[in-house]
Amino acid sequence: MELGSLRLAMPTAVLAIVLSTAGRPEHSGAAALPGQDLQAKLEYCKTCHGLSGQGYYGYFPIPRLAGQQPKYLENQLRAFNERRRTNPVMANVAHSLSPWMVAALAAHFRNLDARPIGGGPKDRVATGRTIYQEGLPESDVPACSACHGPEAKGQDEIPRLAGQLFPYTVNELTNWSKERGQGGTKVDTSAIMTPTAHNLTQSQIAAIAAYLSYLP
């Protein structure tokens, strides 16, 4: 009885929050369309990004979204759509999402707290922690913690890194300037990471990614 009413109350409460923060008049009535239904769209996202948003090892690593900063998610979806971030699959996904849907999805993933999958080489974790917390002054690499926070939870448009999939972090840092900030004219906040990603060696990237992959 109590469980039943809770189950009913929870989605309603979530919807109420979502609608009150991001509701737009043009959305009313659109919920009947399959592509506009939040639950169906969440299931779509989680088919690839994991049922708890924990990420997934496909042929390509599919990043963790659980606990991600909503502003970062919204920025990235816009970047995919505007081809500033190169990813044909996600460009297609982002193109189909209304601003209302993006806000609702981002708010949902923000509140997920899946356990990290882990998977990075354990013997690199200690080195990774040191680089993350202190940087590499001799290579002009600032401490990651300075922007991403001591627990790697991120803030606003600065992404959470804690619990991110090892091969995903490695790929992103390795290909930063080839994947992000593309297309020239538009301002893209990813530029801030370009020198740092450039100054890291493959071994240092692996160490940082290993450390983050286990971070709750």
Partner: peptide, 22 residues
């Protein structure tokens, strides 16, 4: 390769690979 986002159909390629090689 791309799925059909409007119908919530995911891309197969992301998991099964560009050449469906697994």
């Amino acid at each position: 390769e791309l799925g059909i986002p409007e119908s919530n159909i995911v891309s197969c390629l992301v998991c099964h690979g560009p050449n469906a090689e697994g």
